[in-house]
């Protein structure tokens, strides 16, 4: 509940090094993740979420876990890690934690693509 009541890292980053967006408002969930990276370490991370309480809490939790990690470490964050950190989610809400982790992957993927160029 704490991550729903006081979500961490809400907002957007101007000119992010990586940006990820997953979900669809039609389905009731949409998440955006912004990352700022220095030497492959996630220095800043922000999110915005349209969705249920679990979606908001998992977004917040993912940003907290990922902050300070290298991008490769952050890629290893699993959906279960997020749910475990939140002391479990009901089965029908597991897809919310999937979305949060997926949004982070997308942001890192975007960062890596940009770096290649």
């Amino acid at each position: 509940m704490d991550h729903f009541t006081n979500p961490r890292n809400v907002g957007i980053i101007e000119n992010p090094d990586g940006y990820g967006k997953v979900g669809n408002p039609v389905c009731g969930d949409l998440m955006e993740m912004y990352i700022k990276v220095e030497n492959d370490v996630i220095k800043d991370i922000k999110f915005k979420t349209f969705g249920c309480g679990s979606a908001i809490a998992t977004s917040s939790m993912v940003t907290e876990i990922a902050m300070g990690k290298t991008v490769d470490e952050a890629l290893k964050i699993t959906r279960n890690d997020v749910a475990n950190e939140l002391d479990g989610l009901p089965p029908q809400k597991m897809h919310c934690s999937n979305l949060a982790a997926d949004a982070l992957y997308e942001a890192i993927k975007d960062y890596k693509n940009k770096k290649k160029k």
């Binding site: 509940m1 729903f4 009541t5 389905c27 009731g28 969930d29 349209f50 969705g51 249920c52 309480g53 679990s54 979606a55 908001i56 809400k93």
Partner: peptide, 26 residues
């Protein structure tokens, strides 16, 4: 517009107010 019902429900509950929603998440 722009927000989701289950999070409205949970947020209202923090004020001690119980409401219902027709949202999918609930």
């Amino acid at each position: 517009s722009y927000i989701e019902g289950e999070s409205i429900l949970l947020n209202m509950d923090m004020y001690g107010i119980q409401i219902a929603t027709g949202s999918a998440c609930s």
